[in-house]
Amino acid sequence: MHTGAYSDFKNNLLDQASELRARIRSGAHTAPTSGLANSLLQGNVVILPSEWAGDFLLYCQNNPVACPLIGMSQPGDPSLPDLGHDLDIRTDVPEYQVFRNGERAEKVTDLKSLWQDDLVTFVLGCSFSFEAALIRAGLSVRNVDEGRNVSMFRSNIATRPAGRFSGNMVVSMRPFSGADAIRAIQITTRLPKAHGAPVHIGDPSLIGIRDVNQPDFGDPVTIRPGELPLFWACGVTPQLALENARLPFAITHVPGKMLLTERLNEELAVL
């Protein structure tokens, strides 16, 4: 792409992200973010007291496929300037999940009344980021086509523990024909910060999923005769680790409702 055209393309995307974050900040958009601001990196969010930040950072380093770290804040700082010039983590996610003693206690649309001076924000890459690349390649992404949240499942794939953090991987599922599945693998392999290649293909029962039409998070999508379900590592994985760690207090995004950054997917692609 010509330099001037690329600059215009990027500026248009950044304007989209800023406008959408403004709608999220005002409470006008509380829906899932799949299919929005195509080509921009979306992020899973984990916010916890600084006392536990070291262990959680190690958990991410131990599990880079499920927890690809793309941003981390200073304690008490709600900004993440490397991910967005005006980003405020207290208001810029469509909906937050609050954990208390490992339990999903409540959902809120902003964190102004919950914010503490010792909170550290972690932002992890998201599979929504590679959906635009799949669509540009001419592939059908079923959850986008059907206007639904992606299907997410608890699996039996163990993660590598760190301190109090441990648990099995959560996976997201998208169905493809055989030929399209090969292409999807090729495309997503280049995007390790968006979870990279699938961790499983085919029979869901082999990774502990009893019914592929009954997701643990998100919505079911149509799987047509002859299609293969492809399963990618999912950034909801840390939410299971939070349940197991039973921290007194922590916050995440609600599955499917991500943080929109100002980084382009291709900036983190592997050539």
Results as ranks from 00 to 15, higher is better:
residue 144 V to M: 06
residue 173 M to E: 11
residue 161 P to G: 07
residue 126 C to L: 07
residue 128 F to I: 06
residue 208 G to I: 07
residue 148 R to K: 14
residue 160 R to F: 07
residue 211 D to Y: 05
residue 132 A to T: 09
residue 138 G to Q: 09
residue 240 L to K: 01
residue 237 T to Y: 03
residue 215 P to A: 12
residue 161 P to L: 13
residue 165 F to S: 02
residue 178 G to Q: 11
residue 218 G to L: 00
residue 144 V to A: 03
residue 133 A to E: 14
residue 150 V to I: 15
residue 213 N to A: 13
residue 247 L to N: 03
residue 233 A to P: 09
residue 204 P to R: 10
residue 196 G to R: 02
residue 212 V to W: 15
residue 162 A to T: 10
residue 241 A to C: 02
residue 238 P to M: 09
residue 183 R to D: 04
residue 154 R to E: 11
residue 147 G to Q: 12
residue 245 A to D: 02
residue 230 L to M: 14
residue 145 D to I: 08
residue 230 L to V: 10
residue 198 P to S: 06
residue 200 H to I: 06
residue 155 S to Q: 11
residue 169 M to W: 05
residue 174 R to F: 07
residue 200 H to D: 08
residue 157 I to P: 06
residue 181 A to R: 05
residue 156 N to W: 00
residue 222 T to P: 06
residue 202 G to A: 08
residue 166 S to Q: 12
residue 251 I to V: 13
residue 177 S to C: 10
residue 130 F to D: 02
residue 208 G to Q: 06
residue 125 G to V: 14
residue 229 P to M: 12
residue 236 V to R: 01
residue 248 P to D: 14
residue 244 N to G: 06
residue 249 F to L: 15
residue 186 Q to W: 07
residue 147 G to S: 06
residue 190 R to S: 15
residue 220 P to C: 05
residue 251 I to E: 04
residue 150 V to E: 00
residue 157 I to M: 12
residue 145 D to E: 15
residue 217 F to E: 01
residue 194 A to H: 03
residue 244 N to I: 05
residue 231 F to G: 04
residue 219 D to E: 13
residue 148 R to C: 10
residue 150 V to W: 02
residue 231 F to A: 03
residue 225 P to K: 14
residue 130 F to L: 02
residue 133 A to H: 13
residue 135 I to S: 05
residue 201 I to D: 00
residue 228 L to G: 05
residue 180 D to W: 03
residue 157 I to Y: 09
residue 141 V to W: 07
residue 132 A to R: 00
residue 151 S to G: 14
residue 160 R to D: 12
residue 206 L to K: 13
residue 139 L to K: 03
residue 152 M to V: 12
residue 176 F to R: 06
residue 151 S to P: 15
residue 238 P to R: 04
residue 223 I to H: 08
residue 209 I to L: 09
residue 132 A to Y: 02
residue 166 S to I: 01
residue 191 L to G: 02
residue 198 P to F: 08
residue 184 A to I: 11
residue 163 G to K: 13
residue 223 I to M: 11
residue 156 N to T: 12
residue 129 S to R: 05
residue 141 V to T: 02
residue 129 S to I: 09
residue 180 D to P: 07
residue 201 I to N: 03
residue 164 R to D: 10
residue 227 E to H: 13
residue 198 P to I: 04
residue 196 G to Y: 04
residue 155 S to Y: 04
residue 247 L to I: 11
residue 234 C to I: 03
residue 163 G to M: 12
residue 133 A to P: 01
residue 159 T to Y: 05
residue 126 C to Q: 03
residue 126 C to D: 08
residue 201 I to T: 09
residue 239 Q to S: 01
residue 154 R to V: 11
residue 245 A to M: 07
residue 199 V to H: 06
residue 182 I to C: 10
residue 243 E to M: 10
residue 223 I to Q: 09
residue 127 S to Q: 04
residue 143 N to Y: 10
residue 200 H to C: 07
residue 216 D to G: 08
residue 211 D to P: 13
residue 216 D to E: 05
residue 130 F to E: 02
